[in-house]
Amino acid sequence: MTSAVANKKRSRLHTSILFYVSLLLILLVVCFPFLWMILASFKTQVDIMATERFLSFTPIMDNYKTVFSEYEFVKPILNSFIVGLSSTLLSLLLGLPAAYSISRYRQNMLGLVILMVRFIPGITFLIPWYVIFSKMGLVDTHFALSLSHLLINLPFIIWLMIPYFDSLPRELEEAAIVDGSSILGLFLRIILPLSVPGIITASLLSFIFSWNNLVFSMALAGGNTQTLPLAVFNFISYAAIDWGALMAAAVLITVPILVISLLSQRFIIQGLTAGAVKG
């Protein structure tokens, strides 16, 4: 009996060791590019190219100074923030009522059409958007970029929130209607407060999609509205690539989103798992 218990404990120990070793290897593979990016942002061009200096180098801050002094990186940061925030707010304003309507009134055909739009590559809409906005004189404006990002964010928010609204008990709505609440009042005062984790998840992921979007910026952005993904090309010239400044810029693009994601991970998990178990 004692031997059987000892063998069982030994088996559990081996399983745990194997699990954590596997987890460590996966984390190493996933995190290595990010680690290399951070280290390279504090290196000179020579140190970046020398593989033997991966960890042994003298850190410098010149790359970050170059990003803001020579490449004027503050303006693209502000542009990306304005476009990301405005497109996310517009997507929430239109997407939340649409998702609730599809969920409660079983508008499956409408949901299917929206899903089909999400499957279509964004580059398909590039030329029509450019023609429309150029005719209206809206090229190189935040408004044009924000509207173009709706093609990505709006279907995503709708399809993320539909299962969340499905998971909410209908008894609450029936009770509110019996008490004399209107559909709009029910949606604003009951449904939305109960859906905060899902809304936070949808908002964060929508903002990330907009923050990282390059396709629409290539056609609709200009000197006044250049976003971060487009500004990265400033570090690449015909003759050379400024790797140090490029890595510093990549860190500045990635870290804010990473910090927000880590701080909001509890809401993200709740939002993505909503509707997985019903009843």
Rank of each mutant, 00 (worst) to 15 (best):
N234S: 12
A202G: 08
Q226C: 13
A240E: 12
G223H: 13
W211H: 06
I200Q: 02
T201M: 11
A248I: 09
A240Q: 09
A219F: 14
F233Y: 08
V255D: 04
S237F: 07
I200P: 03
G222C: 00
N224L: 13
S206M: 01
I241S: 02
I208M: 06
F209M: 14
N212M: 01
M218W: 03
I199A: 03
L230V: 13
M218L: 15
P256K: 14
T227F: 07
L220D: 06
A249D: 05
T227V: 15
N212R: 01
S237N: 15
M218I: 15
Y238N: 14
D242T: 10
W211F: 08
D242Y: 13
A231T: 11
L246W: 10
A245N: 11
I199T: 06
Q226I: 14
N213T: 04
L204C: 03
Q226A: 14
L205R: 06
L214A: 06
A221F: 07
L214N: 03
A239W: 12
G244T: 06
S217H: 07
T254I: 00
M247V: 04
L220F: 09
V255N: 05
N213C: 03
L205E: 09
L220W: 09
T227Q: 15
N224G: 10
S217A: 14
P197I: 14
M247W: 12
G244E: 10
